[in-house]
Design a protein around this nucleic acid. Structure first.
Length: 267
DNA sequence: ATGTCCGATGATATCGGA
């Protein structure tokens, strides 16, 4: 339930296909009274995005998408202005710029919805693409911090910030998501003066945000915390709560990610 | 409670990606 104080509720959720998940997303928005939702892996073109149905639910949409893969969006019922599609100087994958970043100014906040490349394996070109992409993310943040005091980067970073953010470190030996190189890119964001907004778990010790669909990973809590929020100091100072809504990972028809929710004092 | 799910394809089963 909403508190009586003035709060903006912002969330990020990798939904693994917006069209497969639309009813769930709209129900979740209604239940949680979320004001701004960053989506990743919408897996649909901007033209096919269900903007009218979301508008019926009270949300304006900003969308980047070109088909079956990737795709990001921002939904907002507190304003959606100055939309920017894509990172400046974004590295290409196989000759094309992928839809992995979108920004908008929602109320008083500058919000980015981000889907960082997975990297696949350490030997794969996709891993170098991931590192280069994260470098451009830092470059964007450095520039936008000057213009927007209340800036936040939310999304699926595909990086576990610490060893405690994966369920079994041994399983990830020689894998992406935990390497020093990837974590250095998160350190780069902190060195710019951004702060990680760490969500509290609603169950268990760690606030994982992703559990593989396979091998009963969710019931066994074999998860990873890879959906992250980085914010400027003025933004971070307004945070009154942050948590992972693992309930949204339950049941048939769930995404393999749970939403990260951030409550912000409107001041 | 749960032993995968998504979208695409010379499709109606198989594959890449996650």
């Amino acid at each position: 339930m909403r508190k009586y104080s003035l709060t903006v509720r912002i969330a990020t959720w990798n939904i693994n296909s917006v069209n497969r998940r639309l009813e769930r997303v709209i129900d979740w928005l209604d239940q949680t009274q979320t004001d701004i939702l960053c989506l990743q892996e919408t897996k649909c073109s901007a033209d096919d995005f269900p903007a009218l149905l979301l508008e019926g639910a009270g949300y304006a949409s900003a969308v980047a998408g070109d088909g079956a893969w990737n795709g990001v969006a921002i939904l907002s019922k507190v304003g959606l202005d100055d939309v920017t599609v894509g990172l400046p100087n974004v590295p290409e994958w196989e000759g094309a710029a992928e839809p992995r970043a979108i920004a908008a100014t929602c109320g008083g906040q500058r919000i980015w919805s981000l889907y960082v490349p997975n990297g696949r394996t350490l030997e794969h070109d996709h891993y170098q693409y991931k590192l280069a992409w994260l470098d451009q993310l830092s470059a964007m943040a450095r520039n936008e911090m000057e213009e927007y005091p209340n800036l936040a980067l939310l999304g699926d970073f595909n990086v576990a910030p610490t060893d405690s953010d994966v369920w079994d470190l041994d399983v990830f030996a020689d894998s992406t998501h935990i390497t020093e190189q990837e974590r250095q890119r998160l350190t780069d964001l902190r060195n710019l003066g951004m702060h990680e907004v760490e969500p509290r778990p609603l169950k268990y010790d760690r606030a994982y945000t992703f559990w593989d669909y396979r091998q009963l990973a969710f019931p066994k809590n074999r998860g990873m915390r890879i959906d992250l929020v980085y914010a400027t100091q003025p933004f971070a100072d307004r945070v009154t709560d942050a948590y992972v809504d693992r309930e949204a990972r339950k049941g048939k028809g769930a995404s393999d990610h749970a939403p990260v929710v951030v409550d912000l004092d409107e001041g």
